[in-house]
Every structure is written in C-alpha cells, then in structure tokens.
Design a binder for these strands. Structure first.
Lengths: 167, 167
DNA sequence: CTTGGAATGTCAACAAGGCTGACTTAAAAT
DNA sequence: ATTTTAAGTCAGCCTTGTTGACATTCCAAG
C-alpha cells in the first residue's frame, strides 16, 4: 500500500514501506549491539540491564528522587525498587531521606557505584564512538534528529530536560 | 563512511563524552517509542514483543526455517519454541515439513497471521513514517548509517542479507 | 488541632520471556 | 552403521516487568 506519492520527481523514497521496514530492522539489530557490551559485563555480576539504567541516570542526576527516576525509566515503582534495593544493599547507591520532605529518598552513587557505572558506560561508549566516527558528523546529526522524532512526546521532554540540565 | 577527518579545527565535537552520552540516551528513549505502539496492541492479546518479532521476520522471509529464525532473533531455540508453539496453536503460523530435507520446518504466516502482522507493523510504521518525514531524507540516511555501524558485525550481515533478499 | 486524602516508598506474589541442561526423534551425511 | 544435524520437549532458573496491599509522611480542609 502507500508507496504512493513516491513519484514527485525526486524522492520521498525514504518513506516507502520497504524503507520503513528496513528502518525498523535497523533499530532492532542496532539496539542489540548497543546493549551487548554492558550486558556482557553485567552477566558476570548478579545485575542486569535494569541496574545499568539506574546507575546511568543516577550518575547523570545525583540527588534525584525515586519518583523522578520512575518517570525517566518508565517502569513501575515496585519494579525499580527491587533493582534499587540490591544496589543499595551492595553499597553502590546511597539513599538519603529528604530534609525538607521526609517522604522522598534522594539517590547518589557511592565511589564503588561510580566505578561500575564508568566501566559499563565505557564499554558502551567505545562502540558508539566507533559508530559515530565511521558514520561522520552529518550522519550523527541525522541519527539524533530521527531518534528524537521517534520518541513519545513526554519522553522527548525528559530527554531534552536532561540535555539542558548538563549543558 | 569517510567524511571522517572532519578536521582538527572544525569538529570532532560529536565525539565528546557528553555527545556520546546523549546518543545513548536518545537510543534508550527512542527504542521505547519504537516499541510502544505494537506493545499496546499486544497487551490486549496474550502475546508479547517476542511474538511480534517472530511474525515480522516470518512475514519478511516466508518459508524460513526455525534455525534461520534463531540466528536472526538471537535467542535460544527453547525460547523461540515457546513463542512459536503458541502462534502455531492459535493458527497464526503454519509449520510445514521440508520437502528436500524433512528435518527442517518451514514457517509461513496464515491469513490470520498476516492480519496481525500488518496491524502491528502499521502501528509501528505510522510513527516511523512521521519521524522520517519530520527529520527529512538527509537525516534518515544518517540515521541508517549510524545504526548500521552500531550493529555487531554478524548482525550487520544478517541485516544486509535481508535487505538484499528483498531488493 | 485533627483528620482524611495524596504522595512516596516497601513487601509479596505473579507472568513473560530470556537462559542452561538433558533428552528424544527423525533425517542426513559420512 | 555410525555420527551429526534439525527440531522439539521438559524442567528449572533468573531478570524484570506487572498488580495489589500496606506503611509512612505531608498537607490542607474542616
């Protein structure tokens, strides 16, 4: 179906069903690569991808609350809690009761937590750096533009807030 | 590729740790958007993302064998089998014994299977089409170049074989 | 004040979908 | 005839999602 419109002369060729199909497959295979390196490291420890995500975002926004993290990660609080609990028990994350609102817990990485975060992120960054270098700056800009357009609006705001929060 | 070299003065700015961090976060948020629409549909039925993947690749390569599918999906046969069994029982997938090699099972979607595949894919495509249109053809080309560079080499071959197999 | 509702976080139990290991059956290859 | 390969099954484990029930804390309305 669709396919339509391709005419026009020059090209909405990147909007054909086949192109969209290829885009979907590219997302699927690339995401596997994207998570492969940290997953390999985590397999040894008794942690999974969820722990990596928590470490990543706590590192990026120290002192964030559980609720905040919930919104970013998009999981239920019960699901996050399990992950957080093991990280806290193992001394990778510190949870401090809020001083103004004692219901809140503010989250920080310990030195040990920072170490693991760096190890995981370095593995991931190595691959991403190579991909970015191979593809070149123009491609990277396009990559980001498409990904941003693909997010749910709410997630796009989260993403942009994080960017701005770090300059 | 190439492009590289962007030059000393000019900008390897897209390779700074902060840029790579943003790239990682973009992947995370975008992948959530990417899977959100089909997930919503599947939630109602008693299927999950794994079923969608199976339907997608059987649709794209009718008659593929179980082993083939295993390689593409990158899961164990036990894991795939659970999914495949329910799809076969429910009449969405047909499994035919190979004529030249009777050990093999060749997989096809039934009419009903095609229907669900199309429903899921349409939902996903709608979002992707909008993202591609917003970002423009240049960006889409870059998007694909970066994703391809991010895949494991083995997966990149799978991806390219699929592309070629469909022109 | 006090009290009731909302926000925050915790505990328990369940399901999906990965995984490994052991084993069977049938067909093909040697 | 023996070994290897393709597929499938059974059992059991782990991670990471889910709901539901509950405790604590805060805050605002009465």
């Amino acid at each position: 179906m669709a396919e339509g419109r391709a005419g026009q002369g020059e090209s909405l060729l990147y909007l054909t069903d086949e192109q969209l199909r290829q885009g979907a497959e590219a997302m699927f295979f690339a995401y596997r690569g994207f998570t492969a390196d940290p997953d390999r490291i985590l397999a040894g420890l008794s942690y999974g991808r969820a722990h990596h995500r928590a470490l990543h975002f706590i590192h990026g926004a120290p002192g964030t609350t559980v609720n905040n993290l919930l919104a970013i990660l998009g999981v239920t609080k019960q699901s996050l809690n399990r992950v957080l609990r093991s990280l806290i028990e193992d001394g990778l994350v510190e949870s401090r009761v809020g001083r103004t609102d004692k219901r809140e817990r503010h989250l920080y990485l310990t030195a040990e937590g920072e170490d693991l975060e760096r190890e995981l992120t370095d593995a991931q960054r190595l691959r991403m750096r190579a991909a970015f270098r191979d593809a070149g700056p123009e491609a990277v800009a396009g990559f980001r533009r498409v990904l941003e357009a693909m997010m749910d609006p709410e997630m796009r705001h989260q993403y942009q807030r994080l960017r701005e929060g770090r300059g």
